[in-house]
């Protein structure tokens, strides 16, 4: 079942086009990695998918019952001040905010969902700790738990492993894979780490400055653009 379709989408900032003529679709249960050079429009595309920026032309359609506020979003890592007073539990529970609408307080079901996703990420024991005092890897797990709380269908992850050490990176990739496999939640991930992308993802969307690639990982590895990108900076 298709849950998201981009058809001939273009974005521009102040008259400069950053993406044009992009078409792809996401099926329910997919694990899609969006890779590409800096400045190729990955962040812009994320804003478009979250409905924070309207495309200049073309359409982004959510289908199969997916509503815009049901996308579990993990923003690019921002430094949280060490003394920011917020417990992990409070952070994760805030993932349910969109479901509350105008109702002011969280219900039992919200607290249960927060507990479940904290347990899934192995962070339940740490729930009362201050978010700012956690390690980078633990913080990302808490934020992933929050994203999980916000959705039953699709996660949108913006550079989830940026700045993490190798052990934390592998751990986070493993947990994302489990969420995709065990819960059947669609994962759309923007990543710089193209080697891990081809290792874990089922499909690849490559945004280049001139050309796009969209297809399965096997197709990507065999394509010219994929070979060039996977081979690092070699030009042949």
């Amino acid at each position: 079942m298709t849950i998201l379709t981009c058809r001939d989408v273009s974005f521009s900032y102040d008259g400069n086009t950053v993406l044009s003529g992009l078409s792809f679709s996401v099926e329910s249960g997919d694990y899609l990695c969006i890779v590409g050079e800096n400045g190729s429009g990955k962040s812009t595309l994320i804003k478009g998918l979250l409905r924070l920026k309207a495309p200049q032309s073309g359409t982004i359609t959510l289908c199969g019952g997916l509503r815009p506020n049901e996308i579990g979003y993990l923003p690019q890592r921002a430094e949280t001040p060490k003394d920011f007073p917020a417990s992990c539990y409070e952070v994760v529970l805030s993932g349910r905010i969109a479901r509350r609408g105008i109702r002011p307080f969280y219900a039992k079901a919200d607290r249960a969902a927060a507990r479940e996703s904290l347990e899934r990420m192995g962070m339940w024991e740490q729930r009362n700790r201050c978010f700012g005092e956690l390690s980078g890897g633990q913080q990302q797990r808490v934020l992933l738990a929050r994203a999980l709380c916000a959705t039953a269908k699709m996660l949108l992850l913006d550079e989830p492993v940026a700045g993490l050490d190798p052990v934390a990176t592998q751990e986070l990739y493993r947990q994302i894979e489990e969420i995709n496999r065990d819960l059947g939640i669609t994962v759309v991930m923007v990543s710089h780490d193209v080697h891990s992308a081809v290792q874990y993802a089922g499909k690849i969307l490559h945004l280049g400055n001139e050309s796009f690639f969209f297809g399965t990982t096997a197709e990507y590895c065999a394509s010219d653009i994929g070979k060039r990108f996977l081979g690092g900076c070699r030009h042949d």
Binding site: I71, P75, A78, V91, A98
Partner: peptide, 23 residues
């Protein structure tokens, strides 16, 4: 403040997430 407490927390802690989920 009491009625909006949870929303104020979400916006204070992480504005980009709050925006993304439609606040």
């Amino acid at each position: 403040f009491v009625l909006l407490y949870n929303k104020v927390f979400a916006v204070t802690f992480d504005e980009s997430f709050a925006k993304a989920v439609g606040l």
